[in-house]
């Protein structure tokens, strides 16, 4: 998969995971990895970007005598997913156009 396409999908994938409920770094990696391969080092900049863009907020919860950072999706984050899905419909139209007649 093209690296830029993968990056874009990962960004939306992370937001989608957070729609299901607040989560933390390691759990997000595990959940997203079911669909797209991702490492902790890849997730870090994505989370930072989402935080800077206001798509997620961060809060800490005590767990086993340490603090664990949880990420929560915001309204803007959910809007971003909707916007992505609309854009993707346009992409699919182009995809169908490109695909037409190619495999025949």
């Amino acid at each position: 998969m093209d690296i830029n396409l993968k990056r874009g999908l990962l960004e939306i994938g992370v937001l989608k995971i957070l729609v299901n409920g607040d989560s933390y770094g390691y759990q997000i990696v595990k959940d997203v990895s079911r669909y797209v391969e991702i490492q902790e080092s890849t997730l870090y900049p994505i989370l930072k970007r989402h935080e800077a863009s206001g798509f997620v907020t961060v809060y800490s919860v005590e767990y086993n005598g340490r603090l664990r950072k949880y990420f929560k999706i915001t309204r803007e984050g959910k809007r971003r997913i909707v916007s992505f899905l609309k854009e993707w419909e346009e992409v699919m139209e182009v995809y169908d156009f490109i695909k037409e007649g190619i495999y025949e």
Partner: peptide, 16 residues
């Protein structure tokens, strides 16, 4: 921030 993130990831893996 980076060290806190990686430290937390490793701790979660240990718990796993």
């Amino acid at each position: 921030k980076a060290i806190s993130y990686y430290s937390e990831c490793i701790e979660d893996m240990l718990d796993d």
